[in-house]
Amino acid sequence: MTSIDYQKYNKRMKMFKVGRKAGVQIVMTLLAIVILYPFVMALGVSVKSPMEALLSPETFPTEFHFENYAEAWEIMDYPTIFLNTTFITVAGVLGIVFITGLAGYVIAWSRCKRFYNFIYVFFLCGMMVPFYTALVPLVKLMSDLHLTNSRLGMVIYYWGRNVPMAVFLYVGFIRGISGEIMEAAEIDGANRWSIYWRIMFPLMKPITSTILILDGMSLWNDFLFPRMMLTKSALRTISLSQYYFTGELGTQYHLAFSAYILTMLPIMIAYFCLQKYIIKGVASGAVKG
């Protein structure tokens, strides 16, 4: 390539780049509208009068009935469902991190490689088991163990269900940690328990937060199994209350959408506060695996 050609090429490239950049910007803005549209629509319907919500739900509200929110709040018994979901999610993810962290540590570090490799693969197989395959026996099992109609029962079930993914992530991460610190600690004569909590667990911080986030979201939004297990309204979670609200008052758009907005708020607020960590956590969770 001669230098003149190269300059020409460069100029063309530059113009092309500017044009492309503007084009991409426009496309991205359009896509942002596509993503936002359902939320805007839901907000609009949620403040309409019952009549307007039914007859012309898609227009901009002519009057604002914020009392819809108060009514929906009341009907759902919002504090209860919020605390139920929070308890199940928090207790669930903490338990998962606790038991799988320990397991991951031993699987990744033990010198008894063959045995623990077998255990590791055994755990990984669980990732492929769809919930529906085990549905019928699971329902029976929960009933036999007296874990139905109990928040703690749900939590304990999650401790089992979410083991494979968490073990997978922990082992992958721990294998990447340099061995020197560990060896030093072992020569110091510290026992495994204190090595784990003093040295390993703090080192595992990034992957722990990833697991907290991934499992936290899946537990928070879980629906089908809680629907079968938690039949009392005092035990309802947010997903369940969305379902029951739709069943009971779904024909009253103004209330239903107030309820939808209210039930989406906690996770959206959490997302906006922790956005950076969540996105990082998801990305590292997948790529590390």
Binding site: H146, N149, R151, L152, F201, K205, A234
Partner: peptide, 24 residues
């Protein structure tokens, strides 16, 4: 800070458990 967070969450949990004892 992670440890602290973990511990504080655990404390919340321990307070929460009796409040939300077994639903049945």
């Amino acid at each position: 800070s992670v440890l602290k967070m973990f511990v504080s969450l655990l404390v919340i949990l321990l307070i929460a458990v009796p409040v939300f004892a077994n639903g049945s």
